[in-house]
Design a protein around this nucleic acid. Structure first.
Lengths: 217, 217, 217, 217
DNA sequence: CATGAATGAGTCTTCATTCAT
DNA sequence: GATGAATGAAGACTCATTCAT
């Protein structure tokens, strides 16, 4: 068991990760506050209480900070959504599964409000990204990943017969848009509202806005 | 009747308006292509086939070009939506009125696709604007005007009993979001049938995505 | 004869040329003083009494300033060398032709001492350029042009039987080097020394450094 | 005889020298490849397979690395030239002495091609140095040492009556230039025969480029 | 003493805005 | 009022140097 060189390595890696995270957190806040273009590397560095050069020790370009942030958060979001769905067996039917997924998402939103303000600017939920960054290719990929997730959810509902047989792409967009509406509305709100928003999202997505008779018990 | 000085004045004004419109059209295209920050005054001037200085003879700052464009298009959009609604008497019921309004909007989108790419970036349909421009106050105002329009539509539906008695603000957001989903989807496809998009928007807004029994004839 | 638009155009072009030259002259001085890398665009601008941005209105990059300078001076130099040779008919023999060429060169050096300090850094006379600029390709071309000129001179001497039948490339290098030695030595000196240096250059190039008997009259 | 502490000290010193040489060798290669300004300490460290900080444990500044390199190589070069001359007794006459000196130099060039690319950039052979480094004073000193060596050679030739009675400084420059021409020519060609270059250098230096009658046997 | 990440002054380059023609 | 070159503040990025481990 030669652990000699392992410990320092681990520590060094930990330090790297610490800086990297500090930068990403700072970037999240600054991007959200001023938008990608309005954010200066200097701002990010100051917020992270490090020097400008240090940012460049961890990311090659400004664009890469955004990309990394996007990647990090996308992964987190998807993991949360998946986790929600997986705890709910398919046998229970589509709606609970959808609720769990959407619920997971709003939970994550609550933890990373700032990010979702950016995600909006990047066309995360639907629509195309503002053509801001050179690295837009990579960023688009992440967006695609998220959309694929929406599509999966919709496909499950179509397969189970719970969703209408319209163009599933349109449905996916519709789901994304509806989520987005309430995600954005909830950016300023407190955590407690999140659940409420999740419920409304699902309800409106499934049944629309028209008046309904009381569901017959 | 001293019309002497009036004619030249009118001509002068016409000339001003010509330039102004040329600049706004160019700006619409360039903003859509590169985003507000990515668009250079130079680009806009070139597209309008005029000199940079000329832009500054008509607008004080870059921001003002955006503001003016927003104002112009917002007004056009609202006029079109209102026109649609006004041709449809309230007596016919809510759905036809909604259809006319939304239809008017998609019509306008067809004519000004580029603008709606920008409108999206600015959080026109829902969500907050990307905090890009200094003049964001004025821009937010325009956004508000559009949202008020949505709210009006929703209020009418609530009043008529056609829409559920949920938070009308939430419904307005939901309507905006749903429109946005299909507006954005239609931005890429050159020939996409706006009418079709309008129909889906209304349908999903009213009934949601769940499967329905055939409407009993 | 529609001269109307021509005059302003001419004036504008003159103004452009004025700025361009001012920049190149400033660059010549600053490059010579601090070397290419040590020279800041700011320095050049200040010396030319213009703003930094103006430099970029005339040249895309710092590299291009150097390239342009190189081109300008190379052309001037070659023109002068050619002019010298052309005024001296071949019939007069090789030595007077060589003297005229080399003399023309030293004349030009007297007018652009600063440039030749740079030319040295760029491997103008022989040897390879310091690998400083990205645009080194273009710069190398200019260097090549100058070397071709040397080669021409040498070839003429070989053809006329005045030069030994050694590798003409080596002779061209030797000529370049010898010129260089005295050009550089003369950078600090006054104009009057130029002629003297030209004479020594030719003499040493032709006869070398060994002691000679008085030329038999 | 207390040798106790001596051995470790010696070892320590050996280690220091090892690092120092590794750095200088790396610097030689990197400077030659990218020029002084283009070379980053990072590059040098990487080439020497050590860390950046280590470079600073051995040299105070980047400039000092260059200075040390110049010093080291200049000394080597001079030693070699002197060695050549010393093996050839004055009694044999000037030409063999010169041949031995120049031969020694080309020998050294063959071993340190990279260095001579730098030496050129620094105006080693003739001309003034590119004013790149702050430490140029020290560097100029080294250049002076080399030039003094050339001057010595020339003086010997003048004294022996083998060289013409021109300005000996000019002759020294001429010798330097001629060497430089062939040194640089030999830098590219990997296998170029140094001996051949040495012969041409001496021949042209002594007799120049003009055609000669066969030496009477 | 080796290491390599942190630091921040320094530089190039862009582009909104001004202004003489 | 149109023009387009001049202006210079602002920001991304580099790299010599420092220093905690």
């Amino acid at each position: 068991m030669n652990l000699g060189p392992e410990r320092p390595l681990r520590r060094r890696d930990e330090a790297r990760a610490l800086f990297r995270n500090a930068i990403l957190d700072a970037a999240e806040a600054v991007f959200a506050e001023r938008g990608f273009h309005g954010a200066r590397i200097q701002d990010i560095a100051e917020r992270a209480r490090i020097a400008v050069g240090t940012v460049y020790n961890h990311f090659e370009q400004k664009d890469d900070v955004l990309s990394a942030l996007l990647e990090e958060r996308t992964e987190g979001l998807i993991a949360r959504v998946r986790a929600g769905a997986e705890q709910t067996p398919r046998a229970k039917g589509f709606r609970p599964r959808l609720a769990a997924s959407v619920g997971g998402m709003f939970e994550y939103v609550g933890e990373h409000r700032a990010f979702f303000a950016i995600a909006n600017e990047l066309g995360f939920f639907s629509g195309k990204a503002a053509p801001s960054a050179r690295s837009s290719e990579r960023n688009l990929q992440k967006t695609e990943v998220f959309r694929a997730l929406l599509r999966e959810l919709v496909d499950e509902g179509v397969a189970s017969g719970d969703l209408g047989e319209v163009d599933p792409d349109a449905l996916a967009r519709f789901l994304g848009s509806t989520m987005r509406a309430f995600v954005l509305a909830s950016l300023d709100k407190t955590d407690s509202d999140m659940r409420e928003h999740a419920v409304m999202t699902i309800d409106l997505f499934l049944h629309g806005a028209r008046r309904r008779r009381r569901r017959a018990k």
